[in-house]
Design a protein around this nucleic acid. Structure first.
Lengths: 335, 335
DNA sequence: ATGAAAGCGCTAACAA
DNA sequence: TTGTTAGCGCTTTCAT
C-alpha cells in the first residue's frame, strides 16, 4: 500500500479529533460550517480518499461481487461479464472476476479467496472438471448469497440462471432435419453438467420427433476448437459420415468447418453445421456459421439481479429461483 | 457478508484468549501442542477462514493487483490477463480486473476504486479516449507502484511494457510492398497514444524506404470492426482504390476483408490485407488473415514482473524501465 | 459543536 | 505457556 492520507493526518494538521473530521466529511449536521469547510478543503488538497479496506471491516460488507467463470477468452463469458458489471455498477458494487481455467482445483481456490475477502455475493459458472460441489455447498452453508449460471449442476438448492439449452438444441437439430440432414452428429459437453445433459436431450428428442433413430456413434464428447480439429477429420472420412453437425459452442463448430474445408467438403451442400453461442466468430467464417444465440449479456444481468435480491433479503430464507433465458437460432450460410 | 467464524468464536468456545487462538493457528512455538490441536480441530469443524479484510487492514497490504484494460472482449487483452494472473499467482497475489470500456470516465473511476481498495500495484492499458493523464499521475504521486502497457502515453515517468509497434508496422507494410502492393492504406488508432503514433511511423518509413510517397488520403483513423465495415465499402469503390491494407487490429482487418468479399473483390489477388494481433479470428477467416503477433501473454507477464519489482523495492526511487516485446509477422493467405 | 472510546478481525509487542 | 493491549482506518454512541 502507498502513503495515502487518512483522517488522522487531517485531524492532526487541523488540531481537531478524528471524529470531527469523519463527521465533517460526511456532512454531519452537528459540525459547524467553518470546520466542515476547513476539513473538506484540506482533504481536497491532500487528496484524501477513504480507505475502503477499513470501511469494509467496519461495515462488514465489501460492496463487491465475486464472479467465477471458466475462461474470459470465451466470447460468451465476455458478454456475461458485461451484463454482471452493468447491474453491479447500477447498485454501486464492484466485481471481482476469477478464471478457473476449467480447473476444479483453481475454482475451489478462487471461491475460497472470494470468501476470505468477504465478497457480498458470488456468481459461478462451473468448470468442466467440477463434479464435487462441496465448495458450493460451503458458500450456501456460510449463507453467502450465490447464483449459479450457465454451467450448473442440478439438484443444488440455489438460484440458477441458465439458457434454454434443451429448446436451443432441439430447434437447431430440427432445423438441420428440415434442411435435409439424415445423419446428424452432436459434439457435446459431458453430461454431469446440465448444459451437456439438456442439449443432448434436445438433440435426441428432435431426432425422435422426426422419426430418426438415435445413433450413439454420432454422439461425440468434444467441446473445444483443438479437440474438434483433432477428431473431425477421421469422422468426415467415414463412409457413413454425418451430413449435419450440431456443436456445443461456436469454436467447436468452427473446428468442424475448418476441417471440412481442408478436406474440400462443401458446406452447406455436403454437410451442414450449427454452433451454439452466436459469437463474433460465427459471423466472420466462410460460410457464416448458423448458431444458437445464448444472450450472455442477459444471462449476466439476470443472474446479478437475482444475486442482489438475495443480498438484500438475507434474513428470510426463500426458495431458490430458476431463471431460464431464451435462445434464438441465428441463420447463416452453414445450413 | 455472511456469518463466518472468527477467532473470537473459537476462543470463546474453548475458553482461551483470542491471541492464543491466533498463535495456535499460525503454529507459534510458544503454544502447547494440546492447545494447538484443540484450536485447529475446532477451527476445522467450524470451517474457520481468516478474514482477509481484517488482515489487509492490519498489514497495510492487500496482496492484490489492479488491472485496468479497455475491453476484456479483445482477444489480445484476454491473453494479457492470463500472463498477469500467472505471474500474480506465482507471487501469491490476486488480480482485480477492471474494464474501462474505452471510456476515460470509467477508467478514472476504476483507478479510484483500486486506490480506495488499496491494491498493492496497478497495471493499466489506457482507453482510447484518455488524453488527460492526471489520474495516472495521482497514482505515481501516491507512490503506488504502476506499470503501463500496450496503450501508453509517452513522457510519463513510469515503467512501461509495449510491443515493438514501429517494427511490427514496418515489417507488415514492407511485406505488402514485397508482395507487389503499390497503394497501401493504413487503418490506425489516434496518434495521441504511442501505439497509433509508432505504427504510423513504421508505415510511413516502410513506404519511404521503398520509394513510395506517403499519400495522406490513404491514412484512415479507424480501429473497430463496425467502423471498418462502415468506411471500407466507399474506399473500395474508389477508382484509385488501395491494393493493400494494414490495420491496427485483427477485427478491423476482418471488417475490410468482409466488405471486400461482399463486393466480390478477390483477396489476395486484388487487394492484400494484414492485421495486428494474430488473434484466433485471424485463423478462421477465408482466406486466413496475415497478422502481426503481439504476444499478449508475454506482455502481461513482463508488465507484472516489472510491477513486482516496484512493489518489492518501494523504498528506493529508481528510474522507470521500458520493456519492448518483439512482434512477429504470421503469414496466411490474405497476402 | 466537539471529543473520547469502542469495535469491526486480526497480529504482535509486552506482561505475567 | 497464555493473556492483555494497542493499533490498522473508520464510524458511531455516549459524554461533555
Amino acid at each position: 500500500m502507498g502513503y495515502q492520507v487518512t483522517i488522522k493526518n487531517i485531524a492532526e494538521k487541523l488540531g481537531v479529533s478524528i471524529s470531527t473530521v469523519s463527521r465533517a466529511l460526511s456532512d454531519h449536521p452537528d459540525i459547524s460550517s467553518k470546520t466542515k469547510k476547513a476539513v473538506k478543503e484540506l482533504a481536497d488538497v491532500l487528496g484524501y480518499k477513504p480507505n475502503q479496506v477499513a470501511l469494509n471491516l467496519k461495515y462488514q460488507s465489501t460492496k463487491t461481487l465475486g464472479l467465477v467463470i471458466p475462461e474470459i477468452m470465451h466470447n460468451y463469458f465476455s458478454t456475461v461479464i458485461s451484463g454482471v458489471e452493468d447491474i453491479a455498477y447500477d447498485n454501486d458494487y464492484s466485481v471481482v472476476i476469477c478464471q478457473s481455467n476449467e480447473s476444479y482445483k483453481r475454482e475451489v481456490v478462487n471461491i475460497q479467496t472470494l470468501l476470505s475477502n468477504r465478497v457480498d455475493g458470488i456468481l459461478v459458472s462451473l468448470s468442466k472438471e467440477t463434479k464435487d460441489i462441496s465448495h458450493i455447498k460451503k458458500i450456501i452453508n456460510n449463507k453467502i448469497p450465490i447464483v449459479l449460471f450457465d454451467r450448473i449442476i442440478d439438484d443444488l438448492n440455489v438460484d440458477v440462471v441458465t439458457n434454454d439449452d434443451y429448446k436451443g438444441a432441439y430447434t437447431a437439430v430440427n432445423h438441420l432435419i428440415v434442411k435435409g440432414c439424415k445423419r446428424i452428429a452432436i459434439y457435446t459437453a459431458s453430461e454431469h453438467l446440465s448444459i451437456g445433459k439438456n442439449r443432448l436431450s434436445g438433440y435426441k428428442d428432435a431426432l425422435c420427433d422426426n422419426n430418426i433413430t438415435v445413433d450413439e456413434s454420432l454422439i461425440f464428447y468434444c467441446d473445444t476448437y483443438l479437440d474438434s480439429m483433432k477428431i473431425t477429420a477421421s469422422i468426415l472420412k467415414r463412409v457413413d459420415r454425418p451430413d449435419g453437425f450440431f456443436a456445443v459452442n461456436d469454436m467447436t463448430a468452427i473446428g468442424i468447418m475448418m476441417t471440412a474445408k481442408a478436406l474440400e467438403i462443401k458446406i452447406p451442400e455436403e454437410i451442414k453445421i450449427i454452433g451454439f453461442e452466436n459469437s463474433i466468430s460465427a459471423g466472420i467464417t466462410s460460410p457464416g456459421l448458423t448458431s444458437v444465440d445464448q444472450f450472455g449479456y442477459e444471462v449476466g444481468k439476470e443472474a446479478t439481479k437475482l444475486l442482489f435480491k438475495r443480498i438484500k433479503n438475507k434474513q428470510n430464507e426463500f426458495l431458490p429461483e430458476k431463471r431460464c433465458i431464451k435462445t434464438k437460432l441465428v441463420l447463416r450460410n452453414s445450413t
